[in-house]
Computed example of a mutant assay.
Amino acid sequence: MTVVLAELTKLRSVASTAWSLLSAVCLIVGFGILYSTARASHPPAAGSTFDAVAVSLAGVQAAHLAVGVLGVLVVTNEYANGLIRTTLAAVPRRTPVLWGKAAVLGCVTFAVSLPAVLAAFLAGQSVLAAEHLDTSLTEPGVARAVVGGAGYLALVALLGLGLGTVVRHTAGGIAAVFGVLLGPQMLTGLLPTGLADDVYGWLPSPAGLAVTTVRPDSALLPPWAGAAVFSLYIAIAMCAGAWCLRRRDA
């Protein structure tokens, strides 16, 4: 508990925390409204599998880079200013430091993201209602998608934390986050169409974002399967970070 409280104090005392979270909130709500407006101005054809929930939550994908960067900064800032030596001297076992950072970062990111995702959903549905494309929060799968959007962002923050612990350098950690979230999707464009379609849903970002959908999408895994696959990616990143933290000198 002492480690968690210490990490919470450090997270609150860094200006980048507020700016990263504010950026994420603005992207979640702002991009969700803009994309909902664009889709409302071009209504889908009759019988299409239009997903009103995914449209209003499009800002979640825009915001994941902001929280990923926050995850990197949580650990690399300490390496940059030398505070990591004091931290590890106070907690010689080292890994509790990483788990404490993960607990604080994940909870704070989720707590900030959930109201923003809910606001994006409500605002987006009010825009889509003009074309009778909206849906209700009480419809099956909708609440899961809203909560899942906030959960996805919390996991992305942990991805940044894990990669930042491995790289230990801000620029390199941010590049690694961008590479993991965006790189594989770019590379699939080089694959044959059939193979690219089979691989796409298993990539980190599409797998995680599957939980924000309600209508079935042939390009994505089912919501809970996608969440499980994305969680596995996060576990790998965090375990790699823990291994590096234990093995390397501060």
Rank of each mutant, 00 (worst) to 15 (best):
M1N: 09
M1P: 05
T2A: 10
T2D: 12
V3C: 02
E7R: 01
E7N: 08
T9R: 14
K10N: 09
L11H: 14
A18C: 07
S20Q: 08
L21E: 06
S23T: 15
A24H: 03
F31R: 07
G32F: 00
L34R: 04
Y35E: 10
S36L: 08
G47K: 11
S48G: 13
F50N: 03
V53N: 09
A54V: 08
S56N: 09
S56E: 08
A63W: 00
H64F: 09
V69F: 06
T76E: 00
N77L: 12
A80Q: 13
T87G: 04
L88R: 05
A90F: 10
R93S: 14
R93D: 13
R94V: 11
K101M: 09
C107H: 08
V108Y: 09
P115H: 07
A116E: 02
V117Y: 01
V117K: 01
G124Y: 01
L133T: 06
D134K: 03
D134F: 00
T135N: 11
P140K: 15
G148A: 11
G149N: 03
A150V: 09
A154S: 15
V156R: 04
L158F: 06
L159G: 00
L161T: 04
R168G: 10
T170P: 02
A171K: 11
G173E: 06
A176C: 07
V180Y: 02
V180E: 07
P184I: 01
L195A: 12
G201K: 13
P204F: 03
A207D: 08
G208R: 04
A210V: 03
A210F: 06
D217Q: 14
D217M: 12
L220E: 04
A225H: 04
G226F: 01
A227E: 10
L232N: 10
L232G: 15
Y233Q: 00
A237K: 00
A237V: 04
A240L: 14
A242R: 08
W243A: 15
W243G: 04
R246V: 12
R246S: 15
R248L: 11
R248V: 03
